[in-house]
Design a protein around this nucleic acid. Structure first.
Length: 202
DNA sequence: AAGCTTTGCAACCGCGGGTCC
DNA sequence: TGGACCCGCGGTTGCAAAGCT
């Protein structure tokens, strides 16, 4: 199995090491992390280099405290997905799975009184998922039939700020536009009906 | 002021899955 | 087809800083 290897330095990264890694990625891009120690002479495993870049050095990474909106989103997503930090982080721009995991373990789990449990994968699945089928062939039709029709119309009538809900239901997958909900109540309403498969785009 | 405890977070570890040869 | 390599995930650890006595 892959490990950090013998002879690799461990512990906190120095500014010099960060610079070497940053220069390498600027020049060669990401990927092939195991080549980095060989090419640059860094006394770090490829795995450690990857982690350092992904969680800290990448310009995409947002530093600083989590906003209330981010916190709220994490709680909802965790309720739905469980400890699938990378999936949760993927829905929060600029945040890494490690950041989300740490934030949950140090702040939210205490705040919500959640006890740690082993191998939590998915939150409580919905008891039944309504069948929602588009009425016509138009991709962005807002007409639906089946058990889910009521849900769609109730949701639409209740929330004037629902964006692109029809296309989500039509495609049957959770995509970026699903988080265009301005009013978080919409998310509350919809969450029980989004399955794991939807999130994974299956 | 000093020592102890708690907290927060960066980094490590073990594992599984995907790809390539 | 299976072994080596690479990547990414989730759980855990270790350490510095902050808080408390």
């Amino acid at each position: 199995m892959e490990g950090y290897g013998h002879g690799s330095k461990k512990g906190f990264w120095t500014a010099q090491e960060d610079k070497v890694l940053g220069d390498y990625v600027k020049k060669h891009g990401t990927g092939k992390w195991n080549r980095i120690p060989k090419v640059t002479g860094l006394k770090r495993s490829g795995k450690s280099c990857r982690l350092r870049w992904m969680n800290y050095l990448s310009p995409k990474v947002k530093r600083g405290d989590f906003s209330e909106e981010e916190e709220d989103l994490i709680i909802r997503l965790h309720n739905l997905l469980g400890n699938r930090w990378s999936l949760i982080a993927g829905r929060i721009p600029g945040r890494t799975d490690n950041q989300v995991k740490n934030f949950w373990n140090t702040h939210l789990s205490k705040k919500l009184g959640v006890k740690k449990k082993k191998k939590s994968k998915v939150g409580v699945p919905p008891k039944s998922i309504p069948i929602v089928e588009p009425k016509g062939t138009d991709q962005y039709s807002s007409e639906f039939v089946g058990e889910g029709e009521k849900l769609v119309h109730e949701t639409e009538s209740l929330c004037g700020d629902l964006i692109d809900f029809a296309s989500i239901m039509h495609e049957g997958i959770m995509n970026e536009s699903a988080f265009s909900f301005v009013n978080s109540n919409v998310f509350d309403l919809c969450t029980p009906y989004f399955t794991e498969e939807w999130f994974l785009g299956l």
